[in-house]
Every structure is written in C-alpha cells, then in structure tokens.
Design a protein around this nucleic acid. Structure first.
Length: 116
DNA sequence: ATTTTGACGACCC
DNA sequence: TGGGTCGCCAAAA
C-alpha cells in the first residue's frame, strides 16, 4: 500500500535503517536504501546522512558498497569515520573496511523479511 | 524549466 | 585492485 511514501517518511525509514546497523558492523548506502524500501536511492541516503542532525546516529557505520569510506581521503570526516569504526572493532585498511560477504549473514543480523 | 552537483551503485576492462 | 562509464534521484544554481 505504500506506493508513494512522502519524502519525510522516506527520510525516517532511512534513519531507522541506519540505526538498525549493529555496532561493530557496517552497511553500504544502497544497502540502507534497499532496507528502507527505497531501491536505487543510495544518493538519498547520502543526502540524509549529510543533513541528519542527530548526534546519536551511527553515520560512521555507513560506507560505500565497495567498503570504502565515502569521504575524500585524508579529510576530517574520513579520519573521524575511520577512527570511530576502529573504536568499534572494525578493521580499517587504507580507508577501506571489509564488507559483509553475502546477504545471508545480513539477513541473519537484520531479519529475513522485515524487522525494524 | 534546464543544468549541475553529490557522504552512490552496477558494469566493464 | 583499480580506473572509467553510465544510470539514478533530489536539491541547488
């Protein structure tokens, strides 16, 4: 029934999906978008992350689909994200983290159908 | 209304 | 792994 989710709702879903990422783990932008019911809206996720305004939001757990940090190498955001991830036990090598292998593990972590 | 931009992604080589 | 192309979408210019 939700054929036309308003932008506000979409944003709320995205934020929820981001908060659903467990500490010590990472997720891609497209991954979050899909999880929020918004396929092909990875860029929207980026936009939300840029604006969010919630200090508790685990934005640092969101990386590119290839595992690379989305900030320019060497930038403040880049370093901060790497630092935060390491603080959670995530290994960051050359600004890159190891992405979860298959969706199977992903489903196990988040729920096979819908669990937010 | 048209073009550019951006914390992106899938493909290809 | 790494570099380049093309597609996608919303906000800004």
């Amino acid at each position: 029934m939700n054929a036309a989710p308003s932008k506000t709702d979409a944003r709320a879903r995205i934020l929820a999906a981001i908060r659903a990422v467990p500490a010590g783990s990472v997720a891609g932008y497209g991954h979050i978008a899909r999880r929020a019911g918004l396929p092909a809206r990875a860029r929207l996720v980026a936009r939300v992350l840029r604006d969010h305004g919630d200090p508790d939001l685990p934005w640092h757990r969101i990386v590119r689909s290839d595992g690379r940090i989305a900030f320019p190498d060497g930038s403040a955001g880049f370093r901060e994200q790497a630092q935060r991830l390491r603080a959670e036990g995530v290994t960051v090598t050359r600004g890159r983290v190891r992405m979860p292998a298959g969706d199977t593990l992903d489903a196990a972590l988040w729920g096979p159908d819908g669990h937010d």
